[in-house]
Nucleic acid binder design. Structure first.
Lengths: 337, 337
DNA sequence: CTGTTAGCGCCTTCAT
DNA sequence: ATGAAGGCGCTAACAG
């Protein structure tokens, strides 16, 4: 910048203003400065700028597992939206480890990010709470704490579960199992809750043996499949916490010689890209992962602009059912017992 | 820091040294400073530190598509390794767009990252060349420019293709097609080359109609499947550029009523997690995506330490074949014509 | 419209 | 073993 100033025959300050597009610079000077800057390949130093202005135009993104296609898509949405608005992204992966999450947050703060976008681990909230309640601009993605006043963007998990369960009931299923996620995760809770609500609404008794929880990975789904097979009246349909889980589950059932959907109907959640390409294409609840990311950025930027004064306008995105081949009408004679 | 200094009754400078673990601070003072710092929740400002020391302990990661499980895994490896070494990660996604790549690099440089890790777009190299030949510490991942002296970490694509092709030949296949990737990508070139070499080595004539290129997405794979079906002697086996392509291809062939592997054997590349869960579990070439990321970080850090003086020690990681169910012995009577 | 001055938080150098 | 001074590149505030 000093070089540019010397070369253009003006002060450093003038260069700064010309480059920043401030109004109080003569067109001639501005043109000259810009020309020189380009010629010299001037590149602004964001560190200095950040140090001075207390704004880094960087947002910290903390996810639990970037290798999971769900979060990968989410991050893609975040990245797009952030970049469009001139923000860069600092990424950290916690692997669902609360300690890593705590560290990650500290690092981000030291890095002086303008705001934080987090997929909270939720298994241990204390670490998070203190930092997050401290008014630092933060938006939660996909998961939230019902009792904390931290803004979040989620999809309507309760509704998604209702759609799925209702679909199964409408097709005549009565013995519907749910392979849920870890209950400390809000989406797992909400999906379970939607499942329960729907059965109740239809007057179908809830069998607790039909409710498994804690499944996240493909392997968990596979194991859950084995558990289900031990159940006395075998469920005729299963609503899974996620596509990951559903795909593992599918494999497990197929391995045991069952047919999908003839023996067991199966519904997943998330509509990750592969769900259309599984052994039996998966009926699932679609949520727009990119939109989730984009909306989170939008909300965060709004917080930043309003000086985080604005009332927390959390957002719940809508969901819809995607019909494929893993679900069929319940066979006659296999109704309620 | 000033607060800490005041509170501890020492100078800012002493605080700095105490915190940095410099030797010339009395144990007593150091203890006091540390205590106060903790009590006040002091957080070092990386911007200031970076401004002063010209080191940000941040590395820029530029990938072509974070939503692709392959790159997602890669980034996970990078993230882990970087964090272990005290580095943070700035992420940008180019969506295979050379212009975005150019912008991304500029942004990263403005951000003053210590080094760059890039999955180059390769379709337009000029933008990249200038920046990269400028000695800025950079490591390419998964793709490389044979004629540029930019360090890279890749997997042995030629060898992977040889393994795959040889496997098919060993099982009696002679009509082996290759659905390759875009030829401006080095890995696509190398895999095609490995395929060609192997056929030649076995004295099998190469039919150019059997070689398709330009496939990347699931959809591309699906389309390629339709193309293959038009071929006169239908290939009895296909080696695909990636698991993505192979999965699309599989779907396409199954939709047309073909059996895999009975009618057509199929081999993919990458061994993404879903390949074990496709309609027909996919035989594929495994490459460790995490290792790729980790090695890239390792190499970059070495460059940083050596002041980028060290001779560029690019690295080629080994690959291996993973056998699943998408490949079978060629049927008798369907040999060479 | 432009230049001067000052300081963001940290670290290096030099002095004590 | 500690403190004072100066400066990294930039911008905000004020002066001209």
């Amino acid at each position: 910048m000093r070089d540019v100033a010397r070369e253009a025959g003006v002060s450093v300050n003038t260069v700064s203003r010309a480059l920043a597009g401030k109004p109080d610079v003569s067109p001639k000077t501005r043109a000259k400065v810009l020309a020189v800057a380009r010629r010299l390949g001037y590149r602004p130093n964001k560190l200095a700028r950040g140090l001075r202005s207390n704004k880094t135009f960087t947002i910290g993104v903390i996810v639990t597992d970037i290798a999971n296609p769900f979060f990968a898509e989410l991050v893609k949405g975040v990245e797009e939206a952030a970049r469009q608005n001139g923000y860069s992204i600092l990424l950290e992966d916690t692997s669902e480890d609360p300690e890593k999450e705590a560290t990650a947050i500290q690092v981000m703060l030291a890095e002086r990010v303008d705001g934080l976008l987090i997929t909270p681990v939720q298994s241990a909230r204390d670490t998070l709470e203190e930092v997050l309640e401290s008014e630092f601009p933060t938006v939660l993605m996909g998961r939230y704490f019902p009792d904390l006043k931290i803004p979040y963007v989620v999809t309507d998990d309760v509704r998604g579960a209702i759609l799925a369960t209702k679909h199964l009931i409408d097709l005549g299923h009565r013995n519907i199992a749910h392979v849920g996620g870890p209950l400390h995760i809000s989406s797992a809770q909400d999906r379970l809750s939607g499942y329960r609500q729907t059965l109740q609404a239809y007057g179908i008794p809830i069998r607790e043996e039909y409710v498994l929880t804690g499944a996240v990975t493909l392997e968990d789904g596979y194991e859950a499949g084995k558990e289900l097979l031990k159940l006395k009246p075998l469920p005729t349909a299963v609503f899974a916490y996620s596509d990951f889980v559903a795909i593992g589950l599918m494999q497990s059932l197929l391995d045991e010689g069952l047919c999908i959907p003839d023996d067991v109907s199966l519904i997943g959640y998330d509509n990750i890209i592969f769900s259309a390409y599984t052994r039996v294409p998966l009926t699932t609840v679609e949520i727009s992962k990119r939109d989730l990311g984009r909306e989170a950025v939008k909300l965060l930027l709004r917080l930043l602009k309003s000086g985080s004064t604005s009332k927390r306008q959390s957002k719940k995105l809508s969901v819809k059912l995607v019909l494929r081949q893993s679900v069929s009408r319940a066979k006659k004679g296999r109704g309620i017992q």
